[in-house]
Design a protein around this nucleic acid. Structure first.
Length: 737
DNA sequence: TGAACAGGCGCC
DNA sequence: AAAGGGCGCCTGTTCA
C-alpha cells in the first residue's frame, strides 16, 4: 500500500479535496490523517521520506518541495520520483478551460499512485556517451543500417548563434528508447563522412531545426536534404504559444517526465558552490559525464515525438502548411540569418554619439526647472524619466499639473504619449520627457544592442539580438546604418496595402477588387466611391482630404474590427478636426453599402467563428479561438476580432513569405549576387550587386506576384521597390552628413 | 537574485 | 458596457 501525503495551500479547500480525491480517487491513501496543510507562511513538518507519494496542490507547495514555479506544466506528472504537483482546483471557477487539464491531471496522478503508470528511466546500455572516434564509427554504422527511415538529432552548443560559439556535442537516436550523446571532439574526417552518409540516407528529425541546422551547417558544412521538425509539427497541430518546448512536449507525450530536472538541479548547486550568477553560467561548465544522459534524452524524446506527430500529416491541410510553408520557411530563415544584416559600424557610432549628446542636452534642460531639483531633494534620489512612478509624482505633485482623463490598463493615471501631448500644452516638461523617451528608446533598443553583436564583417547575423520589425520607420537614424557594401545596393520591396488586397480576394468583393484593378491612389479611389465625390481621383487628396482620411481610417479599422467609436477617435486624431461617433457610423454604413461583399464576408466569418471557435486561413493555418465560448461579452468580442484579423494578416504575410522563399531559391541559379537578409512584415530586404539590381527586382516581383490562388484576376498584388545605398534611402546622409 | 508584472513604445 | 488586430522589446518595481 502506498503512503500518500496531500499538501495544499489553503486549509479552507481541504474538504473539497478530501471528497474529490482522498476518498474517491485515491482510495489507496492508507493514512489520511498524515496529510498536512500548508499555510501561506509554510509550516512544514512533514518528512517526505515517510511517504511513497507526496501530492502538491497549487503553486506554493510545488515551489516549496520541488522549486518548480509553473504548476500547470507539471500538473499530474511525477517530479523527483515521488512528488506530483496538481493545479489548484480553486482556479477552475474562474478558469473553466482548465477543467480538462484538471481531469487529466488527477487521472494520471492516480495511475502513478496505483502503479498503472510508471515513470521510465533508461539504463546505461540504452543511453550513453561516446568520446572515442572508433565507438562513434560503430554507432553511426548501426544508425545507417537501422530499420527506421528517420533519425532524431540534436546538438548542445556554447552559444545561441552559430557565429558566437561552437558545438560541444550532438545526440542521436535511431531507434525507439535508445540514444547517445557524442562529444564533438571525436568527430574526425571519417566520422564526418559517415554522418553525411547518414543524413543523406535518412530523414533527419530536429526539435527546432532552425537552431541545429545553423550549427551543423556553419561549423561542419553538413547538408540535410530531408529534415523534419517536431516543433513545427506540434505548432501546426496546436498554435498556442509557449507550448512547443521539448520539455513540455516530453512531459505530455512521453513516459520520461521531467528528465532534465536533475541536470538543472546540478547546475543550481554548481552555481551556488562557485558563486556564479545565472547570466554568467556557461553550458561548457557541465562535465561530459553529467551532460551525456540528458543530452541523449533530448534525441530520444524527439524520436518518440516524431513517431507520434507524424500521423498529423495525414491531414491534407496540415500536410500543406507543414510541407509547403513551415519547412521551407525554416530552411529559408536559416539562410537569411546566415546572410546577416549589413550594418555600417562608423554610422552606428555616429548615430550613438548623436543620440547621446541630444539626450544629455535634453536632460540639462530638464534640470532648469526648479521642481526637478525639489523632487530630488525631497525624494532623496536622482530623477529617472523612465520611471512612470517618478514621472507621475513630478508632473502632478511637484509641477501641479492637472492629470488627464487617460488611464492605464490598471486604472492608474497614464503618462503615455497621448497624455504627455495634452500636458505639453500647459507645460514644457512633458514635451521634454517625450523627446527624451524617444531618444533613449532609440539608443537603448537599437544602437546599443547592435554594435556589440556585430561580427568581423560588420554583419548582424543573430536575429535574436535585434528585432527588425520595429526599427523606426520615418527616422533615418537606425535605418541609415544598414548600408550596402561598395558595389552593392539595398533593395527594399514592399507589398502595397496587402491586407486589404487579401480581404478583397477572400470576400470576393468585386467593387473592392475594381479599386485595385483601377490602380492609382488607393485611399483616394475608395473615398471617391464611398462619398460620391465630384472630382477626379487625383484631386481627392487636395480637395477632399478629410473624406480621404475618413475612408482610410475605415479601411484599416475594418481589418481590425474597429467600431464607430474608434473610427471617430482615429479620424479626429489624424485630421485634427472633431469627427463624431454618429458621423463615423454614417461613413461606415456608406462604406459597407459600396463594399457589401466585404460586409457579407465579415459577417459570415464572424458567425462561423462564433459557432465553431476556430477558422482556417487561406493557406491552411488553423487558428483556435476558444474564448468565443466565454461568458464575458468583452472577451468574446475580442476573440472574434482577433480571428477576423488573423485571416487577412496571416494570408498577407504568407504571400510575402512564399514569394521570398521562391526568390531565394531561384537566386541560386543566377549570375549576379543578391542576398535576402530580412523579412519585415510586408516587405523583403536584400543586398544586391549593382549590376544585378534590375534583374533581381524582376525576379522578386515575379515570385511575389506568382498566382497562389489568392489573386485578383488580371491584377496581381502590388509591389513597391526602393533602391539605395542604405535602408534610409539616402535620408541619413541628407540629415546627418 | 531573479521571476513576474506593469507601463510604455516601436512596427505592420 | 465597451469601444481596432498582432508582435516584441525595454525599463522599473515588487516580492519571495
Amino acid at each position: 500500500m502506498a503512503r500518500i501525503a496531500l499538501i495544499e495551500t489553503k486549509p479552507s479547500r481541504q474538504k473539497h479535496l478530501e471528497f474529490d480525491f482522498v476518498t474517491d480517487r485515491f482510495a489507496l491513501c492508507s493514512d489520511p490523517s498524515k496529510k498536512k496543510v500548508l499555510k501561506g507562511d509554510v509550516d512544514l513538518e512533514i518528512d517526505v521520506d515517510d511517504f511513497d507519494w507526496v501530492i502538491l496542490v497549487g503553486s506554493e507547495p510545488t515551489k516549496y518541495f520541488t522549486k518548480i514555479t509553473s504548476v500547470t506544466e507539471y500538473s499530474g506528472k511525477v517530479v523527483d520520483k515521488k512528488f506530483i504537483p496538481l493545479i489548484n482546483p480553486a482556479m477552475l471557477s474562474f478558469k473553466p478551460e482548465m477543467k480538462q487539464k484538471w481531469k487529466e491531471s488527477i487521472e494520471s496522478a492516480e495511475q502513478y499512485v496505483t502503479g498503472q503508470l510508471k515513470q521510465k528511466e533508461l539504463s546505461e546500455d540504452k543511453i550513453y556517451g561516446i568520446t572515442d572516434s572508433r565507438d562513434l564509427y560503430v554507432f553511426l554504422d548501426k544508425a545507417i543500417d537501422s530499420d527506421y527511415d528517420f533519425i532524431a538529432l540534436d546538438c548542445e552548443t556554447t552559444a545561441l548563434y552559430p557565429r558566437d560559439g561552437y558545438m560541444l556535442g550532438f545526440s542521436l537516436s535511431y531507434e525507439p528508447e535508445h540514444g547517445a550523446y557524442v562529444s564533438a571532439d571525436c568527430i574526425d574526417e571519417k566520422a564526418e563522412h559517415l554522418m553525411q552518409l547518414l543524413f543523406d540516407k535518412k530523414r533527419v528529425v530536429f526539435h527546432n531545426a532552425k537552431f541545429d541546422l545553423g550549427f551543423f551547417e556553419f561549423h561542419f558544412g553538413f547538408k540535410f536534404p530531408r529534415f523534419e521538425d517536431t516543433m513545427l509539427l506540434h505548432y501546426v497541430n496546436n498554435e498556442q504559444p509557449g507550448t512547443h518546448g521539448l520539455k513540455q512536449l516530453s512531459l505530455k507525450y512521453t513516459d520520461y517526465g521531467d528528465y532534465e530536472k536533475p541536470m538543472y538541479d546540478w547546475i543550481e548547486q554548481y552555481r551556488k558552490q562557485h558563486g556564479i550568477l545565472k547570466d554568467s553560467f556557461q553550458w561548457e561548465m557541465i562535465p561530459f559525464d553529467i551532460m551525456k544522459k540528458y543530452a541523449a534524452m533530448d534525441a530520444v524524446c524527439t524520436f518518440i515525438l516524431f513517431q507520434k506527430f507524424e500521423e498529423y500529416t495525414k491531414d491534407k491541410k496540415f500536410y500543406k502548411v507543414y510541407t509547403d510553408i513551415l519547412l521551407p520557411a525554416c530552411r529559408f530563415l536559416t539562410d537569411v540569418q546566415d546572410n546577416g544584416v549589413p550594418f555600417d559600424k562608423e554610422r552606428l557610432w555616429k548615430s550613438t554619439e548623436l543620440m547621446q549628446t541630444d539626450i544629455e542636452q535634453a536632460i540639462e534642460k530638464l534640470y532648469e526647472f526648479k521642481e526637478v531639483k525639489e523632487f530630488e531633494e525631497k525624494e532623496q534620489k536622482e530623477f529617472n524619466p523612465n520611471s512612470t512612478i517618478q514621472l507621475r509624482s513630478l508632473l502632478f505633485d511637484y509641477l501641479g499639473l492637472e492629470p488627464t482623463s487617460i488611464k492605464t490598463s490598471t486604472g492608474a493615471t497614464s503618462t503615455n504619449q497621448e497624455a504627455l501631448n495634452i500636458l505639453s500644452e500647459s507645460h514644457d516638461v512633458p514635451k521634454l520627457i517625450l523627446d527624451i523617451r524617444q531618444k533613449v528608446k532609440i539608443k537603448n533598443t537599437y544602437l546599443d544592442k547592435i554594435i556589440p553583436a556585430l561580427n568581423r564583417d560588420g554583419r548582424l547575423s543573430s536575429s535574436g539580438k535585434l528585432n527588425m520589425q520595429q526599427i523606426p520607420r520615418d527616422n533615418p537614424i537606425v535605418k541609415g546604418c544598414i548600408k550596402a557594401k561598395p558595389g552593392n545596393k539595398i533593395v527594399a520591396m514592399d507589398l502595397t496595402t496587402a491586407e486589404v488586397y487579401v480581404a478583397a480576394v477572400l470576400a470576393n468583393d468585386k467593387n473592392l477588387q475594381d479599386v485595385f484593378r483601377q490602380g492609382g491612389n488607393f485611399h483616394s479611389t475608395i473615398a471617391k466611391l464611398v462619398f460620391n465625390l465630384p472630382c477626379e481621383v487625383d484631386d481627392v487628396a487636395e480637395y477632399y482630404s478629410v473624406e480621404r482620411q475618413q475612408a482610410k481610417a475605415v479601411t484599416f479599422g475594418i481589418m481590425y474590427g474597429a467600431g464607430a467609436y474608434k473610427i471617430s477617435e482615429q479620424v479626429t486624431k489624424d485630421s485634427g478636426k472633431y469627427f463624431s461617433k454618429s458621423e463615423a457610423e454614417e461613413v461606415i454604413r456608406d462604406y459597407f453599402t459600396k463594399f457589401y461583399g466585404l460586409k457579407k464576408w465579415l459577417d459570415d466569418r464572424k458567425a462561423f467563428i462564433s459557432q465553431y471557435a476556430y477558422d482556417f486561413s487561406y493557406f491552411g493555418r488553423k487558428r483556435r479561438l476558444p474564448n468565443v465560448k466565454s461568458d464575458n461579452k468583452g472577451i468574446v468580442a475580442h476573440e472574434i476580432r482577433s480571428g477576423i484579423n488573423s485571416l487577412v494578416q496571416s494570408a498577407a504575410s504568407d504571400i510575402n513569405l512564399l514569394g521570398a522563399i521562391d526568390c531565394h531559391n531561384e537566386l541560386k541559379n543566377v549570375d549576379y549576387k543578391a542576398n535576402i537578409f530580412a523579412l519585415v512584415h510586408d516587405s523583403i530586404l536584400a543586398e544586391v550587386e549593382e549590376a544585378g539590381v534590375d534583374r533581381y527586382k524582376e525576379l522578386l516581383r515575379d515570385c511575389v506576384q506568382r498566382d497562389r490562388g489568392l489573386s485578383i484576376p488580371g491584377c496581381p498584388i502590388g509591389c513597391d521597390f526602393e533602391v539605395g545605398d542604405d535602408y534610409s534611402m539616402g535620408k541619413f546622409e541628407e540629415k546627418y552628413l
